[in-house]
Amino acid sequence: MAKGVKPRVKVPKTAAAGETITIKTLISHKMETGRRKDGDGNVIPRSIINRFTCAFNGNSIVDVNMEPAISVNPYFQFEATVPEAGEFTFTWYDDDGSVYEKKKSIKIA
Protein backbone atom coordinates (compact mmCIF):
# COMPACT_ATOMS: atom_id res chain seq x y z
CA MET A 1 0.00 0.00 0.00
CA ALA A 2 1.36 3.33 -1.03
CA LYS A 3 2.16 5.69 1.82
CA GLY A 4 0.15 8.73 2.81
CA VAL A 5 -2.91 8.03 0.69
CA LYS A 6 -5.82 10.07 1.96
CA PRO A 7 -9.09 10.39 0.05
CA ARG A 8 -11.04 13.63 0.39
CA VAL A 9 -14.54 14.23 -0.91
CA LYS A 10 -16.77 17.28 -0.95
CA VAL A 11 -20.50 16.56 -1.13
CA PRO A 12 -23.30 18.87 0.04
CA LYS A 13 -25.06 17.63 3.21
CA THR A 14 -28.54 18.16 1.82
CA ALA A 15 -30.16 18.49 -1.60
CA ALA A 16 -33.65 18.83 -3.03
CA ALA A 17 -35.07 15.64 -4.53
CA GLY A 18 -33.97 15.37 -8.16
CA GLU A 19 -31.43 18.13 -7.79
CA THR A 20 -28.10 18.00 -9.62
CA ILE A 21 -25.17 18.52 -7.30
CA THR A 22 -21.46 19.02 -7.89
CA ILE A 23 -19.06 16.60 -6.26
CA LYS A 24 -15.33 17.22 -5.86
CA THR A 25 -12.88 14.47 -4.98
CA LEU A 26 -9.18 14.49 -4.30
CA ILE A 27 -6.91 11.69 -3.20
CA SER A 28 -3.34 12.28 -2.13
CA HIS A 29 -1.18 9.93 -4.18
CA LYS A 30 2.23 10.39 -5.78
CA MET A 31 1.11 8.88 -9.15
CA GLU A 32 4.57 7.66 -10.17
CA THR A 33 4.52 7.45 -13.98
CA GLY A 34 7.19 4.79 -14.43
CA ARG A 35 9.23 7.18 -16.59
CA ARG A 36 11.20 9.05 -13.96
CA LYS A 37 14.68 7.96 -12.91
CA ASP A 38 16.25 8.16 -9.49
CA GLY A 39 19.70 9.57 -8.75
CA ASP A 40 21.43 6.39 -9.92
CA GLY A 41 19.65 6.30 -13.25
CA ASN A 42 17.29 3.47 -12.33
CA VAL A 43 13.73 3.79 -13.50
CA ILE A 44 11.28 4.30 -10.63
CA PRO A 45 8.53 1.72 -11.18
CA ARG A 46 5.05 2.87 -12.09
CA SER A 47 2.66 3.24 -9.18
CA ILE A 48 -0.60 5.00 -9.92
CA ILE A 49 -4.28 4.84 -9.13
CA ASN A 50 -5.71 3.30 -12.27
CA ARG A 51 -9.44 3.51 -11.65
CA PHE A 52 -11.91 5.70 -9.78
CA THR A 53 -15.60 5.04 -9.39
CA CYS A 54 -18.47 6.88 -7.76
CA ALA A 55 -21.87 5.32 -7.13
CA PHE A 56 -25.05 6.51 -5.41
CA ASN A 57 -27.11 3.78 -3.71
CA GLY A 58 -25.47 1.28 -6.04
CA ASN A 59 -26.15 3.28 -9.24
CA SER A 60 -22.99 4.19 -11.08
CA ILE A 61 -22.38 7.90 -11.55
CA VAL A 62 -18.94 7.94 -13.07
CA ASP A 63 -16.25 5.34 -13.66
CA VAL A 64 -12.86 6.69 -14.71
CA ASN A 65 -10.00 4.65 -16.18
CA MET A 66 -6.82 6.52 -15.42
CA GLU A 67 -3.45 6.49 -17.17
CA PRO A 68 -0.11 7.82 -15.88
CA ALA A 69 -0.93 11.17 -17.52
CA ILE A 70 -3.21 12.03 -14.60
CA SER A 71 -1.47 14.50 -12.26
CA VAL A 72 -0.25 13.91 -8.74
CA ASN A 73 -3.10 13.85 -6.20
CA PRO A 74 -5.83 12.98 -8.73
CA TYR A 75 -8.68 15.46 -8.62
CA PHE A 76 -12.11 15.01 -10.17
CA GLN A 77 -15.13 17.22 -10.29
CA PHE A 78 -18.38 15.94 -11.72
CA GLU A 79 -22.14 16.16 -11.32
CA ALA A 80 -24.72 13.77 -9.93
CA THR A 81 -28.49 13.79 -9.62
CA VAL A 82 -29.95 12.96 -6.22
CA PRO A 83 -33.34 11.27 -6.59
CA GLU A 84 -33.61 10.29 -2.91
CA ALA A 85 -31.67 10.34 0.32
CA GLY A 86 -28.82 7.88 0.35
CA GLU A 87 -25.14 7.29 0.30
CA PHE A 88 -22.37 8.04 -2.17
CA THR A 89 -19.58 5.48 -2.38
CA PHE A 90 -16.24 6.60 -3.77
CA THR A 91 -13.66 3.97 -4.64
CA TRP A 92 -10.08 4.30 -5.85
CA TYR A 93 -8.10 1.31 -7.17
CA ASP A 94 -4.31 1.38 -6.78
CA ASP A 95 -1.82 -0.39 -9.09
CA ASP A 96 -0.56 -2.34 -6.08
CA GLY A 97 -4.01 -3.83 -5.46
CA SER A 98 -5.05 -1.53 -2.64
CA VAL A 99 -8.58 -0.18 -2.70
CA TYR A 100 -9.42 3.07 -0.97
CA GLU A 101 -13.04 3.74 -0.17
CA LYS A 102 -14.96 6.69 1.20
CA LYS A 103 -18.69 7.08 1.83
CA LYS A 104 -20.80 10.21 2.19
CA SER A 105 -24.49 10.29 2.95
CA ILE A 106 -26.86 12.99 1.75
CA LYS A 107 -30.29 14.02 3.09
CA ILE A 108 -33.23 15.45 1.21
CA ALA A 109 -33.95 18.98 2.38
Binding site: T20, S60, A69, A80, T81
Partner: peptide
Protein backbone atom coordinates in the same frame (compact mmCIF):
# COMPACT_ATOMS: atom_id res chain seq x y z
CA UNK B 1 -4.98 10.13 -20.37
CA UNK B 2 -8.31 8.96 -19.01
CA UNK B 3 -11.66 7.50 -19.97
CA UNK B 4 -14.77 8.72 -18.20
CA UNK B 5 -17.72 6.33 -18.27
CA UNK B 6 -20.95 7.98 -17.18
CA UNK B 7 -23.58 5.95 -15.36
CA UNK B 8 -27.30 6.36 -14.82
CA UNK B 9 -26.90 8.58 -11.76
CA UNK B 10 -24.77 11.10 -13.55
CA UNK B 11 -26.28 14.60 -13.44
CA UNK B 12 -24.39 15.99 -16.41
Amino acid sequence: VAKFNFGSGSGA
